[in-house]
């Protein structure tokens, strides 16, 4: 009960901060303090958002499809790599530095290359998303596997458990919270990755839409699409939280 109350009060603070900023923004553009063409007021943005809604939905479906396919493949790749590197130390030593290296290459730098190689369709976008999303998953899982309790592993060994049983009963469930921490990051990377790769070429998607309205100097539409992208990211993160609660019921029970 007390916890709930704290939750509500903390929400009151953050909500009022947002409202305050919106009020200042609205007055600034309504009074002509800033040019409404350069910085459209919140009300204007909402109006444009409603007017453009069908178009925005059409584009976001494409972006979301890319993000989901890329994320799914990224999770799969991250998972397989983490498991292999956990089970075979040689693979860990050989590939871990390489994996870290892939993350030092900026996304924006390889995106044009991917477009040149794979064209303007979905493939280069999905590849880019896979490259950016597998990393947090793989590193999170590996950390989780490595921090498995040695005594618990010995206990299972004494019961005669094999390495895959130890993996299934101890290592994997023990790494779930790290996995979800990685997934939360990867989910937001997936949307951003999709948008960035669409900037560099494509026929549909929120990134393509953004470059178009930018060329038309439609600042209000720019704001509408930024607004939409952050909503999508927020929803995805909420979705991950929900999934985590479903998959890890013991965490919720412990809170009681």
């Amino acid at each position: 009960m007390k916890r709930k109350l704290q939750n509500i009060t903390s929400k009151i603070w953050s909500c009022s901060a947002i409202v305050l900023i919106l009020i200042i923004w609205q007055t600034a553009s309504a009074t002509g303090l800033v040019d409404p063409f350069m910085l459209p007021s919140p009300v204007q943005v909402v109006q444009v958002f409603i007017r453009e809604f069908p178009t925005l939905m059409e584009h976001s479906l494409v972006t979301l499809a890319e993000a989901f396919i890329g994320l799914a493949l990224g999770i799969l790749l991250g998972f397989v790599m983490a498991v292999l590197m956990d089970q075979y130390e040689g693979l860990y030593k050989a590939f871990y530095p390489l994996i870290v290296l892939t993350q030092t290459v900026p996304t924006v730098a390889i995106a044009p290359l991917l477009v040149l190689w794979f064209g303007y369709e979905m493939t280069p976008k999905v590849i880019l998303i896979v490259i950016t999303t597998f990393f947090p998953i793989a590193v999170g899982l590996l950390n989780g596997f490595n921090s498995a309790d040695k005594d618990s592993i010995n206990l299972l060994r004494a019961m005669g458990a094999g390495r895959w049983q130890i993996f299934g009963y101890i290592k994997f469930p023990g790494a779930l919270s790290e996995f979800f921490a990685g997934l939360r990051i990867s989910a937001s990377y997936a949307v951003v990755g999709a948008v960035i790769s669409e900037w560099l070429g494509g026929f549909n998607g929120l990134g393509v839409y953004m470059t178009r309205v930018k060329k038309a100097f439609s600042f209000d539409k720019m704001f509408a699409v930024i607004f939409l992208i952050s909503i999508i990211s927020l929803l995805l993160m909420k979705g991950v939280d929900f999934l985590q609660k479903k998959c890890m019921p013991w965490e919720r029970e412990n809170g009681l």
Binding site: D151, S152, M159, G160, I170, L176, W250, N254
Partner: peptide, 16 residues
């Protein structure tokens, strides 16, 4: 291994 069972000071119950 796998012939006798044991128990330690730590209960080693899996939290999940």
């Amino acid at each position: 291994a796998g012939t006798v069972s044991y128990m330690l000071q730590k209960d080693l119950l899996l939290p999940y």
